[in-house]
Design a binder for these strands. Structure first.
Lengths: 144, 144
DNA sequence: CTGTGTGCAAACTCTTTGCATAAGT
DNA sequence: ACTTATGCAAAGAGTTTGCACACAG
């Protein structure tokens, strides 16, 4: 193994190499921000801002490229929430989401807490790729 | 309550007036295309193209304005599907969708055929605005 | 008539792309 | 060295906006 300052950093490099991606500075840094923390739902601009704040010089175009490369490698998943922004989800397993319009925020619904029943058979010749559930939340208004 | 399939043109005018919208030519024409047919899932550009093909001169900006006005009036609903396009759904009742990436098409899931169980309580101070389920479909591969 | 709606084009946001330069192996 | 990734800026898609003119009531 390579002697690096942190185990986790080495793991990130392996993750990238396993996906056939060169572990460049930018990719290692972005992968670190994405995968060493809790599950995240993030748009390209947010990740770019965070990278710059963390002293990682990376261009927005590279962030977009990288996010798509990670998605193709199966490390990320694209989230379907309304609006023009594309959110990427670091949790690629089967789970669902809360979406808050006011704050433009996405949160995981605790795993296993929603079940879908009576899924109908899909149309002829098609199969279900996945099921996404978005629970849209609003501020509770008591006496407006 | 949405009167569905077979309204007359007069009903469309009433629909608009009931929503506080002047029944202008463009709005009557667009409403006709939207509400006199089966439930539709349509993007602004598609509706605009259809209008022009039908000999209704309307600008794209007006189509956008109108779609948003209809949405505010509760006649339409915005669909959350991935991608940068905004789809409007003429069926505002509780139902869910198939989405086919290959053809960029949205279809209704037959009403009542999906039930969601165990919906978790939303976070403090929030309430559920609605629940959207998108069932993503892909072509079945024979060897499965 | 009076006020609202429409059309046009420009502005805006998010995302992608082309090409020269920089970095990784 | 040789190849692939990055950065920049410009282009692209989709959507919104401002303002003069047109139309509905």
């Amino acid at each position: 193994m390579v002697a690096t300052t942190k185990d986790s950093k080495g793991d990130v490099r392996q993750l990238l190499q396993g996906a056939g991606l060169r572990p460049t500075r930018q990719r290692v840094a972005l992968a670190g921000m994405l995968f060493l923390e809790e599950d995240r739902h993030i748009a390209a601009e947010d990740l770019h801002r965070q990278a710059v704040e963390n002293g990682v010089p990376v261009s927005l175009a590279t962030v977009y490229n990288t996010l798509h490369q990670f998605t193709e490698a199966g490390l990320l998943r694209i989230l379907a929430v309304e609006g023009q922004r594309t959110y990427f989800d670091t949790n690629t397993s089967d789970h669902h989401h809360y979406y808050m319009e006011e704050s433009n925020t996405v949160m995981d619904v605790p795993t296993g807490s929603v079940t879908v029943e009576n899924l109908p058979a899909p149309p002829e010749g098609m199969e279900i790729a996945n099921v996404d559930i978005v629970i849209r939340l609003r501020k509770k208004r008591s006496g407006k």
